[in-house]
Simulated assay, not measured.
Amino acid sequence: MIVSISAVVFFGVLLVFLLRARRSTVSTALVATLFGFLLASSGVAPAVDSMLRSVAQAAHTLK
């Protein structure tokens, strides 16, 4: 679990750096994909899922 969280933090920081540098390359997409997979397998996944469901529900009620 510690390695997974460290990897999530590493790829998250790397992704922020690449996006701030306005680099949209294949490597940025790969980092984003790895970050997503690692985040989904971490303990934060239920909170992220709940937040995204709430945003989707709120967006649906605005229509």
Rank of each mutant, 00 (worst) to 15 (best):
L34T: 10
T61P: 03
H60S: 12
I5Q: 15
V16G: 04
I2P: 07
S42G: 04
L38E: 01
F37V: 11
K63N: 12
F35Q: 06
S27G: 00
H60V: 04
L52R: 07
V9K: 10
T25S: 14
F37R: 02
L19H: 08
R53M: 09
I5E: 15
F17W: 08
V48D: 04
A47E: 13
L19R: 08
R20K: 14
S27P: 03
L39S: 10
G12N: 06
G36K: 00
A29L: 15
S6R: 11
T33R: 07
S50H: 11
V13C: 07
S41P: 02
I2M: 15
F35D: 01
K63C: 06
M51E: 14
G43A: 07
A56Q: 09
S41F: 13
K63P: 08
F10R: 09
L15G: 06
R53A: 09
V55D: 02
L38A: 05
G12Y: 01
R20L: 15
R53P: 02
S50W: 10
G43T: 01
S4T: 01
S24K: 09
A56S: 10
T25E: 05
R20N: 11
V3Q: 06
G43I: 03
L34V: 15
A40Q: 06
V26S: 11
R22G: 05
S41M: 13
V8G: 00
A7D: 12
S4Q: 15
A58W: 13
G36L: 12
A32C: 06
F35L: 05
L18R: 10
F11Q: 01
V3R: 05
S54H: 08
V13F: 11
V48A: 14
L15K: 06
V26Q: 07
V8W: 00
M51P: 01
V44C: 00
V8K: 02
F37I: 10
R22P: 04
Q57P: 04
A59Q: 09
F37E: 07
G12Q: 03
V26T: 04
A47R: 12
L30C: 04
A59G: 02
R20E: 09
S41L: 11
L19C: 06
I5W: 11
L19Q: 10
P46Y: 01
L18G: 00
T33P: 02
V55R: 03
R53K: 10
A58C: 01
S24L: 15
V16A: 13
M1G: 12
A56E: 09
F10M: 13
F37N: 03
K63D: 13
T28E: 06
S6F: 07
R23K: 12
V13I: 13
H60T: 09
S50M: 07
L34D: 02
G43H: 03
M51H: 10
V13S: 04
R22W: 08
L14R: 08
L19D: 08
V31Q: 04
V26Y: 11
L30M: 14
V16H: 01
F10D: 09
F11L: 14
V48T: 03
G43Q: 02
V26C: 01
L34S: 04
A58S: 12
V48S: 07
K63A: 11
G12I: 00
A58T: 07
V16C: 09
A29Y: 10
A7S: 13
S42L: 00
S54F: 11
S27C: 09
A29H: 11
R22Y: 06
V31N: 05
S24A: 13
T28Q: 05
L52Y: 08
L14W: 04
G43W: 00
V26N: 03
A45T: 00
